[in-house]
Design a binder for these strands. Sequence first.
DNA 1: GCAAAAGTGTTTTCTGTACACCCATGC
DNA 2: GCATGGGTGTACAGAAAACACTTTTGC
Lengths: 265, 265
Amino acid sequence: MILMLTGYPMDKMQEVEAFFRTGHLQYIPHLSVDCVIFGFHEGELKVLLLKWKHLERWSLPGGPIRRDQSVDETAHVVLKDRTGLDDIFLQQFYAFGSMDRKESVLLELFDRLNVSNHEANWLSERTVSIGYYALVDFSKVNPVPDFFSEACSWWDVCDRPSLLFDHDAMVERALQTLQQQLYYQPIGLNLLPDKFTMPELQQLYEAVLGRKLDRRNFQKKIQKMGIVERLKERRTGGAHRSPYLYRFDVPRYEQALAEGLAYGF
Amino acid sequence: MILMLTGYPMDKMQEVEAFFRTGHLQYIPHLSVDCVIFGFHEGELKVLLLKWKHLERWSLPGGPIRRDQSVDETAHVVLKDRTGLDDIFLQQFYAFGSMDRKESVLLELFDRLNVSNHEANWLSERTVSIGYYALVDFSKVNPVPDFFSEACSWWDVCDRPSLLFDHDAMVERALQTLQQQLYYQPIGLNLLPDKFTMPELQQLYEAVLGRKLDRRNFQKKIQKMGIVERLKERRTGGAHRSPYLYRFDVPRYEQALAEGLAYGF
DNA sequence: GCAAAAGTGTTTTCTGTACACCCATGC
DNA sequence: GCATGGGTGTACAGAAAACACTTTTGC
């Protein structure tokens, strides 16, 4: 096998060759993890995407599952490798296993990489992918591309390029799951900086739900949840009246996550 | 390989041998589907379980995923094979992929079956399993064991034997998912016979939620959903006053499933 | 007739939503 | 001082929960 193509660092070629040849010994073939990593910046919900070398197209970050690693661990490693972040809210939302997700673009790429179909067989057949979504603090992320990608960057969820594989459907489903969970679970911890204002939290909710909320009712609702505490400080420097800063009450927040907030029936 | 053990039909031995030897060519190794099949009978929520030959223990029905079949299709085939039922509400709820689910009891079984570890290797390593739950009409099910099991029968969800692998956790999580979905999706279609009484539907809700509901409020709530129509008939024969029969308004029911019923926020 | 289940309606409480006024800040 | 965003409280409507009496049926 000869791997020779601009954009791929020579000193890693041996490693990559081994990956194609013997990766199936270390990884479970036909199974992978993909992560929808959500961030929040300037009032917009963002998602972290990778730009593939040579394909000029984008996908979600992901990777194969090691035989000696749990699926959850794999997702955490993907998150860590792409963002530098550890110990983050990460939740499985769906396993994608339809037949039409054969990764035919990969075949093209392997072709250009001079990887024979046989050698890359364990990578090119239909792959079942387990989707996770993460909520991270935009300002703490250091985006790092993986070997196959030349760029790793944030995109507006609502204004992103069309993605490879079925990753568009994954983003949609992750967002839908997030919206549903909003009704009985808090969000914000991990997504916002440690200290934040109530209007910022409201913007986050509005970005996720895709609609405006009433300022006063929102405030009452959050207060009733009992998951935030108001600080004496205010955020100064902006125009207009200075809003109070808040901080999540982490124990109560965790409790609300675990027990849920409210139900019908 | 010699397979020779009471309980295993001789005429199928060749097929089974092929399964152990070359199954990994047809199936994705280390990946499977398991189904939590719920039924409802005499006021109790039931789950369909398989009793393994020689192990004297029970598990959920499941199976490996064919390389030419989607994960959803696989789940439908499992359901069809164990119950005879087709075209049933079946929903993926979680993928189980922790490392502690190596199926060590399988090794014991393979040992007794004289299958060498090497031959059965693709079956005995840690397997990631995608969980589905189904809601079926108890009276229409014809339980059929699979090759590895000697019995297939219903158990009370709340009074079942301890299960193999991590299947106890699967049942718990399926039930939890079902409970959550109850707040924004109707259930009953497929679980109840075509015609049913309001007290029966209420018993179903109570069985799933694990608590009593108020008769009058329940009736109002269901009526407001607009998913049932009351028939002129009543159920006669029982003691006491004859209750009306109801039938699901399938188009409205499907619509409620698709759109959801109500949300907070 | 009596025990047990089924049918029905009203009241109260709570939750969600709509809405208006005052206050702080930068320009 | 004025435009803009932030802080706060009240009033109304709809949903959920609490609750009691009458009817039917088999025995």
